[in-house]
């Protein structure tokens, strides 16, 4: 049975929500402390949202040097599905697993609201169960979610089909309305919206389950 490692830094605060949402899909997971250095028993890794190391310096800047990160980098390079949600996305860019950076939102506000998204590609660990052009709504909850990169990188993201989701009404100033991107192989994804917070029809929105079900499907070796 494949199992997901959910990485916990000091200040991470969405790990239980992610575990609960995965459990609803029948996917086993375990919390993994950032000071650990063994991910060999997991077939996928999620870095959940929160404020790793207090977001001191910059979001993700200190987490990037946590002991577990060298293991995450080698997982990512060997094709293991790695998903960073919100703060996890920031960690993945700081670690160089995804290009670009998340700067402060344009405008002066922390934003916490549901956001309409358009699925751009299914060639990623988070969208294989969706179709290009599908619209889903997921909550965002961030101050530094304004994705940016130089124009050369943006062209590469477009040419390599690495833009995973775009905002319909760009809430934070992200370049090209980007809400989620992947690495070239599609096995590493960073997304600012929180799929785990939209994983129960009883609570009004289960769109996030499609994202997490895609992630679960990617855990089967060779699925991507």
């Amino acid at each position: 049975m494949s199992k997901v490692g959910i990485v916990v830094f000091p200040g991470t605060n969405c790990e239980h929500d992610v575990a609960r949402a995965l459990a609803n899909l029948g996917v086993q997971s375990e919390l993994v402390w950032h000071g650990d250095s063994d991910l060999s028993s997991y077939s996928g890794v999620i870095i959940p949202g929160g404020f790793a190391h207090g977001d001191y310096l910059r979001p993700g800047a200190i987490a990037r040097f946590s002991k577990i990160m060298s293991e995450i980098i080698s997982c990512a390079n060997s094709g293991v599905p790695v998903l960073g949600i919100c703060n996890g996305f920031q960690v993945l860019t700081e670690a160089g697993l995804l290009p670009g950076a998340l700067q402060k939102n344009s405008g002066l506000r922390f934003i916490c609201q549901p956001e309409a998204l358009e699925v751009v590609t299914t060639r990623s660990i988070t969208t294989s169960q969706l179709s290009p052009g599908d619209r889903i709504t997921l909550p965002i909850n961030h101050f530094e979610g304004n994705y940016t990169c130089d124009s050369q990188t943006l062209n590469l993201l477009i040419d390599n089909d690495q833009i995973v989701m775009r905002y319909i009404d760009n809430p934070n100033g992200s370049i090209d309305n980007i809400a989620a991107i992947s690495n070239k192989g599609g096995n590493v994804v960073g997304m600012m919206p929180h799929p785990e917070r939209a994983s129960s029809a009883l609570l009004g929105n289960s769109d996030g389950l499609k994202v997490l079900a895609s992630f679960a499907a990617s855990l089967v070796v060779g699925a991507l």
């Binding site: 910059r58 800047a61 950076a101 940016t148």
Partner: peptide
């Protein structure tokens, strides 16, 4: 390596 992010 740490104090600054060259993208920003």
């Amino acid at each position: 390596r740490l104090l600054s992010n060259p993208v920003l």
